[in-house]
């Protein structure tokens, strides 16, 4: 007994997954090609092909999800998100301090450069605002 006229070498789920995997790969390749292009028209071409490919990948993904062909990864736990938030809040605070200090140095340097004759006065600042 023959199954039907639809005979494939692979189950349809695997076929769809192969296309999805290739769309993901091709999206990455278009992104790389766009960033490494010199001609503005070629960069524009790769950018529009990237957008079009992302749209195809998203549509296929949604179809596969509706057909229960794709199991998304399990949800992240609340305590894990809390931990990450706390860690990155600290990192961001440190980065802000670094930026303030760096910007302060830049400002001081440009002040110094503009005041050649008042060299001593500008080097002996009693309060360094960027350490506050």
């Amino acid at each position: 007994m023959y199954q039907s006229h639809n005979q494939s070498l692979m189950p349809e789920q695997d076929m769809a997954y192969t296309v999805l995997a290739d769309l993901k790969r091709v999206s990455r390749e278009y992104a790389i090609a766009a960033t490494e292009s010199t001609c503005p028209d070629i960069r524009q071409l790769f950018t529009s092909l990237l957008n079009s490919t992302l749209r195809l990948q998203g549509d296929l993904f949604q179809t596969m999800q509706q057909l229960k062909m794709y199991t998304p990864s399990s949800p992240a736990l609340k305590q894990e998100i809390d931990k990450q938030l706390r860690q990155h809040e600290q990192t961001f605070q440190k980065t802000k301090q670094f930026l303030q200090q760096t910007n302060g140095n830049v400002q001081q340097f440009s002040n110094l450069a503009g005041q050649h004759q008042m060299q001593q006065a500008s080097m002996q600042q009693p309060n360094n605002p960027y350490y506050m």
């Binding site: 039907s4 639809n6 494939s8 349809e12 076929m15 769809a16 596969m64 057909l67």
Partner: peptide
């Protein structure tokens, strides 16, 4: 080619 083969062989209509 991959899309053509899948379109020709899949049993599911939306696929």
């Amino acid at each position: 080619k991959q899309c053509a083969v899948t379109a020709a062989t899949a049993n599911n209509g939306s696929l």
